[in-house]
Design a protein around this nucleic acid. Structure first.
Lengths: 186, 186
DNA sequence: TACGATACGGAGGGGCCCGCCGCTTGGCAA
DNA sequence: TTGCCAAGCGGCGGGCCCCTCCGTATCGTA
């Protein structure tokens, strides 16, 4: 970052700003060329700053994710552990559903995750961990439930509702449903 | 079908066969051109028989889906309504997770569903309906739960676990989790 | 057998992603 | 201030894909 030239930093910021708008408008598979065009740079420059679409998505959603981590910290010592966990999951779902493409950014995508471990999913996992652990200690969630389970579940719900006209509402419905159970043990 | 020329029917069958293999290998976004190439026909011919990727996917998975409907009918009067519903959902999940691309084929994809209503999701919905209704009558599922909810949930789980190394197992885990609830009401 | 209607597939236009490579430009040292 | 040189830029071409048009080969029939 400091070892970077000024114009490079400028371009980085421009591209990121355009990418945010473009992803919001067209989802996770917005055209990288289009982004370059709007930002007024060559397509190679986009690629130089963000090797691969995934890197760009990570950058685009980093801020939102930071915010979610903050939220998790705030909820860490709420009175009701179960309610806190649910509240956070709903927040995550809301973000994922409203911000087109974010769900795809969270899903580990086949390629090498080794690199991406430090990215979205990992950061979120850490934030979620504390909430889950506390809820587990109180025995309000099953023993086998992992952070990955929860994140994957939310990701899936977001992906599946992405094209729904009332995406956000539908996603919330489904999350709640999965949380209390389609058919809880009798 | 009867009003079709013999070569047209031949090509249809060839393309479908190749498409099955190709989708199994490369998922829902297999290249239509590649399918045409392997089938030994022009890419226009593929397009003529299947207008749009979606139509092709529908055709590819129709058989599997028929099988699932059959399964649903067989379970229709099982002794335990709740178990029957779960069993069917697990079957659906297993199929979706094992057959790459099927999840995408089930998800309503933005474009006009009006046409696709008769396709995958609709057929499955009908099959699922009976099972769900019976379970609801017995009061083992929440009142507000709809067929669409369940299908969407399964679709989401399949989509989110698609790239997982143990996709089938993971998907099953998550389905079960959602079914009994992450944190059932106390 | 000869004649339409039907179906085929090659060609061409438009996009996107990617890698290469000569040129510009910013930042530092003299 | 000036000059240098690496960091950074972006146009270009290749490869692949999707889609459409249209001349042509083929099938089924009279």
């Amino acid at each position: 970052m400091p070892g970077q030239r000024a114009d490079a930093r400028r371009n980085y910021a421009r591209i990121l700003a355009v990418a945010e708008a473009e992803v919001a408008a067209h989802g996770a598979d917005a055209s990288l060329e289009q982004i370059a065009r709007v930002a007024g740079v060559g397509s190679a420059t986009v690629r130089r700053h963000f090797p691969g679409r995934r890197a760009l998505l990570d950058a685009v959603f980093r801020e939102r994710i930071e915010a979610l981590c903050e939220r998790a910290r705030a909820l860490a010592d709420a009175p009701d552990a179960r309610a806190a966990l649910l509240a956070w999951l709903r927040a995550l779902t809301a973000y994922s559903a409203s911000a087109r493409g974010m769900a795809a950014a969270m899903a580990p995508d086949g390629a090498f995750d080794e690199e991406a471990v430090h990215s979205c999913s990992a950061v979120l996992g850490e934030a979620c961990g504390a909430l889950l652990r506390r809820a587990a200690d109180e025995g309000v969630v099953g023993a086998g439930v992992t952070v990955a389970d929860l994140i994957t579940l939310v990701t899936g719900i977001a992906l599946a509702t992405e094209h729904h006209p009332e995406a956000a509402a539908e996603a919330d419905r489904l999350l709640t449903l999965a949380f209390v159970g389609v058919s809880p043990e009798r």
